[in-house]
């Protein structure tokens, strides 16, 4: 049953799987491509600041899928029908979290290779960047899911979710990008810890938000 749910969710959100949700990855690479044009081709400057730019791009890319993440299924009644079949909102949201992360986390990690080449990042920096994105994107996905569920019944939900995600994602950005500046892998432990906490609470918070949206 969980496999069936996951397959549907992935079909909806995975890049190039018909849903056409490749936008975050394209956006991510586009930022990395535009940055050298904006600051000039100084290889030294690019490799010093490039890692931070990649992190900002990842954070902004995480905002893009939020609009469709939860609101559409509330609107067409999918969550109600699943509830009637005895599936809890927490299960639905845990599956949705996994599908959301799979559809933007690993693609961003892969897209970090061309981004690193465009920004002249050296080997050790790329190494830290890849690990950082791998442990940081689940946290971004969890924040995104909670916000999407909370704002799903609001009319300006899409615009609001972008604004809400930015401050909540700051700790991940600080430790993730900080690891690059100091070449210090220990900061990534903090990123992993924050991600773990967010992933653990996201299904419950988002599930409660879905239930609350019904009572309006």
């Amino acid at each position: 049953m969980i496999a069936a749910l996951l397959r549907r969710d992935l079909g909806k959100f995975f890049p190039f799987a018909g849903g056409g949700a490749a936008l975050p990855v394209v956006f991510f690479v586009a930022v990395a491509m535009l940055y050298p044009f904006a600051v000039g081709p100084d290889a030294n400057l690019l490799s010093r600041t490039g890692g931070g730019v990649v992190w900002i791009a990842a954070l902004l890319a995480a905002i893009l899928p939020l609009e469709k993440l939860v609101a559409e299924d509330i609107e067409i009644g999918t969550f109600d029908q699943l509830r009637l079949r005895g599936i809890t909102e927490e299960t639905m949201m845990a599956v949705r979290l996994l599908a959301h992360w799979l559809s933007f986390g690993p693609p961003l990690v892969l897209a970090a290779f061309p981004a690193a080449a465009l920004l002249n990042l050296d080997g050790p920096t790329l190494h830290l960047l890849l690990i950082g994105l791998l442990v940081g994107t689940p946290g971004l996905a969890a924040i995104g899911l909670m916000i999407a569920a909370l704002t799903a019944s609001l009319r300006a939900g899409a615009a609001l979710s972008g604004l809400l995600l930015v401050p909540l994602a700051l700790p991940i950005l600080i430790f993730g990008a900080g690891a690059l500046a100091r070449q210090d892998a220990a900061s990534l432990g903090f990123v992993a810890a924050i991600s773990l906490l967010l992933v653990a609470i996201a299904p419950f918070a988002a599930g409660a938000a879905i239930r609350a949206a019904r009572e309006v």
Binding site: G11, E72, I76, G77, T78, D80, Q81, L84
Partner: peptide, 16 residues
């Protein structure tokens, strides 16, 4: 017993 609901929202993915 199991409850089945039919309302104005059929819970079918619009794109599929």
């Amino acid at each position: 017993g199991m409850v089945g609901l039919l309302d104005e929202r059929p819970a079918l993915d619009p794109d599929r």
